[in-house]
Design a protein around this nucleic acid. Structure first.
Lengths: 244, 244
DNA sequence: TCTCTTATGCCAACACAGTTGACCTTACGC
DNA sequence: GCGTAAGGTCAACTGTGTTGGCATAAGAGA
C-alpha cells in the first residue's frame, strides 16, 4: 500500500469518518495549519492531526504520501494566499515590491507553518504562478531574459530567506521564546563595556531595533539595483549598441 | 536529575566510559557534527550519538540540558569557526564583507548543522564576539551608533537568512534532493509556454542560475547602501549641521 | 432496487525519537 | 585509605512516522 495516493479531483467515493466528517485535502491542510498555530512548529504530528480530525492517523496516508508531502502542500497554500487578489498594474517597481511584501507577509502570518516550508521547492501550482509573476514583471519592465534571471533569483531567495528568518523567531515555542528573551536580558543588556564596548553602547537601540524585520529595507535596496540596471540598459539602447 | 548540568570548567571527576573513552563537551559537539554530516540534518539523535561515543544516551544529559542545548552549542561552534583567524584591517568595507562571507561560508560548510542553528540566538561567547565585531567595524567607519544599529541588523539578518536558505538546500537528504531535482526536471523545465511563458523562456538560464547562492550580490548591495550613508554623513558634517 | 467491486477508513504493530529516575561504581578530596 | 558524590548505566515512559491487513460502505451497472 505504499504509494497509491489518489489526487483530489480523481477522488470518487466520499466515505464518512467515524465521527461523521468528510475528509478532503483542503480540510486536512487547514486543520494542520491550525494545529501548527496552536501547538507551535513542532506541534504537527500525524497522531495529533488524526485526533483533531477525529480519524485514524493512517487515514491521512490516503491523501498525502507522508507528513513531508503534507508539508509541501501547506507551503503551496501559503504562496497561494500571498498571491490571492494580486494582479500586475504595469508599474514594475510597485508590482515587484507588492509581490515581495505579500509573500513575506503570508509566511510571517503563519510563522509555524512557514518554518517548515520556506526552504522547500514544491513545483506545485501556486509556487509556479508566483515565479511566473516575478519573471513577468521583470521582463515587462524591459529587462532581457539574461538579466531578469539573476534578479529573479536574488529577489525570490531574499524574500524567502527573510521570511524564514523572521518566521523562525516568531514561531519559537513560548518556552524557547522566554529563554531567548532571558538570554537577551541577562546577557546582551548587561555586557560590560570593558569586554564588549560596541554592544554595550548600542544595547538600548538594539533592544528596539531587533524586534522589527529588516526585509523592507533589504527589498528596497534590491529594487534600487534593478532600477539602475534598467537605466543602464536603456542608455545602452539609446547609444545604438546591442552588447556591452 | 532534571537540571544539574555542570559547566565544562567546573568538571572535576573525569570518569571513563564503558569503552574507555573520556567524554567532554567538545568531543560531544564534534561527534554530533560528524553525525550530522554523515546522516543529514535529521540524523542527529541522542541514541545515535550515544552509539557513536560508545556511551549511554542518558550520559549526554550530564553535559547538556537536552538535545536543544546541544544544538545551540553546535551553532556557537560554527560562528567560532567563522571568526577564527579574522581580525579587522581598518578598511571597513573589506572587513564587513569578510565577516559576512566568512559567516555565510562557515554555515554553508556544515549545512546539516546550520539548518538546526541558523535562526537561534544563543548568547554564547562566539556569537557575542561576532556581533561585537560587526558593530565595531561600523562604528570604526564613522557611523554613529544610531545609524550603525539598523545597518548591523540588516547585515546580520541578511547573512544568517541566506546562510539558512543556502544551507537548507545543501542539507536536503539524498532522497529529497533527488525529489527536488525531479520536480525541476519534470515540472519547471517542461512547462508549456502557453500557461507559463516567462518560466518557459527562462528555463535554460534558470537551470544554471539557481544552483549558486545569491548572497554575494545581496551583500554587495547592502555595502553600497552603507557607503552611501557614510558619504551622506560626511557631507552633513562638512556642512556644519549636526542633525538632518 | 439489488449486487458487486473497490476505495477508503480503521486497527495493530514496528522501529525510532527524547527524556527521566534509580542505581551503582569509581575517581577524587581529605 | 576512606567517604562522598560525580558521573556513567539501565530500564522505562510517552511520543513519533509509517505499514500491512482488514472490513465496510459508496457508488457503478444491471
Amino acid at each position: 500500500m505504499p504509494k497509491p495516493v489518489v489526487s483530489e479531483e480523481k477522488r470518487r467515493r466520499r466515505r464518512l469518518t467515524r465521527s461523521g466528517k468528510v475528509l478532503s485535502e483542503q480540510l486536512i491542510i487547514d486543520t494542520a495549519m491550525r494545529l501548527l498555530r496552536e501547538h507551535g512548529s513542532t506541534g504537527l504530528s500525524a497522531r495529533r492531526l488524526g485526533l483533531a480530525l477525529d480519524c485514524d492517523p493512517s487515514t491521512l496516508y490516503r491523501y498525502f504520501r507522508g507528513m513531508d508531502d503534507l508539508t509541501l502542500a501547506i507551503g503551496d497554500t501559503l504562496i497561494g494566499q500571498a498571491l490571492h487578489g494580486w494582479s500586475p498594474t504595469g508599474a514594475w517597481r510597485a508590482d515587484l515590491r507588492g509581490l515581495g511584501v505579500r509573500i513575506h507577509a503570508a509566511y510571517v502570518a503563519h510563522p509555524q507553518a512557514a518554518v517548515l516550508t520556506t526552504s522547500r521547492v514544491t513545483g506545485r501550482a501556486n509556487e509556479l504562478a508566483a515565479d511566473e509573476a516575478v519573471l513577468g514583471v521583470l521582463r515587462g519592465a524591459g529587462l532581457p531574459v539574461a538579466d531578469a534571471v539573476p534578479v529573479y533569483h536574488a529577489f525570490i531567495d531574499q524574500t524567502l530567506a527573510f521570511a524564514a528568518l523572521d518566521a523562525a523567531s516568531l514561531a519559537l515555542p513560548n518556552a524557547a521564546l522566554r529563554a531567548e528573551d532571558e538570554v537577551w536580558r541577562s546577557t546582551y543588556a548587561h555586557l560590560p563595556a570593558s569586554s564588549h564596548p560596541h554592544i554595550a553602547a548600542a544595547a538600548p537601540l538594539l533592544a528596539t531595533e531587533m524586534v522589527n524585520s529588516a526585509y523592507p529595507s533589504a527589498l528596497d535596496l534590491l529594487l534600487d539595483a534593478v532600477a539602475a540596471r534598467l537605466k543602464a540598459a536603456a542608455q545602452q539602447g539609446s547609444d545604438g549598441r546591442t552588447r556591452g
